[in-house]
């Protein structure tokens, strides 16, 4: 019983953590997009920083939202392997 409660608590804290990570990444993506907009507005020929920001944003989405590491089996396993 106590073990079950601990598992439920772990699940709950993992859920909160996942949601917080998602929110932090989202805020960062919005901030980068705002920065991108102003760079494009101010500097006409300043392409490299824009490329840098775009690549960074893509990496954030691919890593945190698309969970690319699951492909290699190294990411968080399904948190509820409770059938074992």
């Amino acid at each position: 019983m106590a073990e079950n409660i601990t598992q439920a608590e772990q699940n709950e804290s993992g859920y909160k953590e996942d949601r917080n990570i998602g929110f932090a990444v989202f805020i960062l993506l919005i901030a980068l997009t705002i920065g991108e907009f102003f760079i494009g507005y101010i500097a006409i020929d300043w392409n490299w920083p824009l490329w840098g920001i775009a690549i960074f944003k893509a990496v954030l989405i691919i890593y945190y939202f698309m969970h690319v590491t699951k492909l290699f089996g190294s990411s968080e396993e399904e948190i509820h392997d409770d059938t074992n």
Binding site: T33, E36, F37, I39, G40, Y41, I44, D45, N47, L50, W51, I53, A54, K57, A58, I61, I62, F65, M66
Partner: peptide, 15 residues
């Protein structure tokens, strides 16, 4: 979304 991350600066901001 990732595709648009590259298309947005390429179409709206660069040049």
């Amino acid at each position: 979304d990732v595709v648009w991350v590259f298309f947005y600066p390429a179409l709206y901001l660069m040049g």
